[in-house]
Write a protein that binds this DNA or RNA. Structure first.
Lengths: 217, 217, 217, 217
DNA sequence: AATGAATGAGGATTCATTCAT
DNA sequence: TATGAATGAATCCTCATTCAT
């Protein structure tokens, strides 16, 4: 599936890219503040630094802006995720590192993640698949890292389990953003990473309690 | 914190309750289909079976409807959660049962959960706390059950861990609804319950394989 | 073919009729002054004496107004035409009378005829047939009167000729309106009626010259 | 009255002529399809084969395009009319020939005639007279031919009658275009010419029936 | 209590025209 | 001369809310 094309009247590709970046930047700020529906196209144009007429030289409909914004945020998150994720090693340690990095990215991009998270549903049936595809790609990155660990014999997991784990990691990252109203009151980012990682690896029964039992070995 | 009062012009409390129930029922259906913003008050009135004028006898603003809807859904979920959750026993078994029941409730009320999930953010700063409060109450229910297990010596967990676990369980339930576009393609509800429960209790390293290997160490 | 229904949100049929009459009246005046395209919906609402919101309670789109206007004008012309046209007699005299009456109606409703004449083409492919149908009905009225004359032996004409004549009469009526910028400078209405009637009955060769040949009279 | 000047920024007269011809050609096609108001200047520029910027080097306003188009169409029709019309002979035969030729021109240029017919009214008060002048010139051509017949003693008509006849001929030509939705369903062009010519010359009473009666006189 | 007609602020989008390159 | 990006006034239409009946 290729990138969904948002039609622009302006031909100069470089300009289109530039203007759309302005646009996205302005729009994200607004969407964070008031959400997609409560943001007007005029506000977007203004925030982007050009007139309403110009805005419409680079998009067809307001929804295009939303698509562009979501698309862009996903790209950013994914890119940063990709940098951090060492997809070669296949060791427990590198997996832990990957999770930690991902959570940190989410933390830094909280606002963006939140927007994307809350507004994707406003995308038309037409645009949605393109965005969901990207989400799955990110999940697949975790899947890959975990799979490597399995292949290396560091973990023993079925394919179903691997997939489930990848989804869980992904959602727990987002969770840090969309439940920040409560989680970030209780935990620091480091604590959150530590706790989630421990729980993920040890499970409820394998945590502290299990440790205590281990002296016997 | 008491229930937020939505003002009605009509005095007869019984009637208010009745009309609001009609209203909520109609609105949920509409919100599921088109979301809050794309649903008009006229549509809500029609779906509820009365006129737009009458609608406004029972609410002050459109947002009131959203609040009422979210509130109602939370109440339903919570109530059903409460029925299932045996908050006395404090055994691993009853915790597993509780999780399973919760996931099943979410499965049955998928649409509602989704609406609530996606539209809460449209609530005003004014109404939001009341709804989030309810969410925390539900989390607290899991917290309580887990705590009992700890107190009974079935599990050994810190308070931070308990809280984290409760949030994880809660979110993993919702996840079944809001990620249904991918999860429900891969797993049946039973599988999902099984997998998540196993992972929760054993963690990645504690799953079947790891257990087998541990004797050797 | 039944009347094309223009949807109204308001149920009360009497009110719909009343408001639409106001609307049409205002719109005709505006269309006469500036044409359909240069008239805004707000102006129409204002001219009708109510708000833009109310306007849209009685129509779906701006084009509906145009349809309503054209429809109404046709109805008026047709009705007045029908009153005047003695469709029973079937004598040359009554035909002449009919033409004269028709031309007088056009003269009185010049502005309306002009509007209809110039704006029908702006109707959508959807609405156009309904309006053209009415035009044909009017032509058919003349056709009928002429046919009667033929049946009475007052005239001897083929069906093709009858149809052609009916169309000619109809267009010559309209012509008085749409070519008024020149015709009405040269002729009074009475002259116009006299000239057209004479030409119609006698033809070029049968006019003045023919008189000379009629020594018998 | 001289040709109304449409201002151009470009000086080179030859270029102006060339570009305007491109422009008119493109615009006519568009006006035929969607009418003047629904055609955008961008579309016109595109259809003409140059940019919007260039378009405005050769006109001042969108209305100028309409004027240019109407003017051009009139010129074409008039020119072709002029070729056909033998303005010297002054015989019934040459008049009939002229009418027939004119009707054929209209038939061939239907779309153009229609555009001109329907859109002239959109011209500003400023430009209108220039176009109407051309129309009168065409009418005058018929007037002239008929007058010659009168002078030659082939016809006996008053000046009023001559003018009326000229207008009738002119309108009956246009009629073939603007009432084509019905006329062209009923008649072939040849039939139409035949019928109209006969009616014009003989009148209702002078057709077949009258002929029969004439022996008696 | 119920109704639904009326309101008008507000929002998305278009398009003629300009002007710097 | 030619280009096409930028502009923003103008326009159609929607919809939450009110209020007289």
């Amino acid at each position: 599936m290729k990138k969904r094309q948002v039609q622009a009247s302006v031909k100069d590709e470089r300009l289109v890219k530039k203007r759309r970046d302005q646009m996205i930047k302005g729009a994200v700020t607004l969407f964070i503040q008031k959400g997609f529906h409560r943001t007007t196209t005029r506000e977007i144009a203004k925030a982007a630094g050009f007139s309403i007429g110009t805005l419409y030289e680079y998009i067809r409909t307001k929804e295009d802006v939303l698509y562009l914004v979501c698309d862009s945020i996903y790209d950013q998150v994914r890119e940063r995720l990709y940098e951090g994720l060492d997809t070669k090693k296949g060791t427990i340690e590198s997996l832990k590192q990957g999770i930690s990095d991902y959570f940190k990215v989410v933390d830094e991009m909280q606002d963006e993640v939140l927007v994307m998270y809350q507004e994707v549903k406003s995308l038309s049936k037409d645009a949605l698949p393109y965005v969901l595809k990207k989400e799955l790609e990110m999940v697949a990155m975790f899947e890959h890292v975990v799979t490597l660990c399995v292949e290396n014999g560091e973990l023993e997991l079925s394919m179903e389990e691997v997939k489930m784990i990848a989804h869980n990691i992904f959602v727990q990252g987002q969770m840090w953003a969309f439940r920040r109203w409560t989680l970030q009151k209780m935990y620091s980012l480091e604590q959150y990473i530590q706790l989630q990682t421990d729980l993920l690896f040890q499970g409820i029964q394998g945590s502290a309690a299990a440790v205590e039992f281990q002296p016997d070995t």
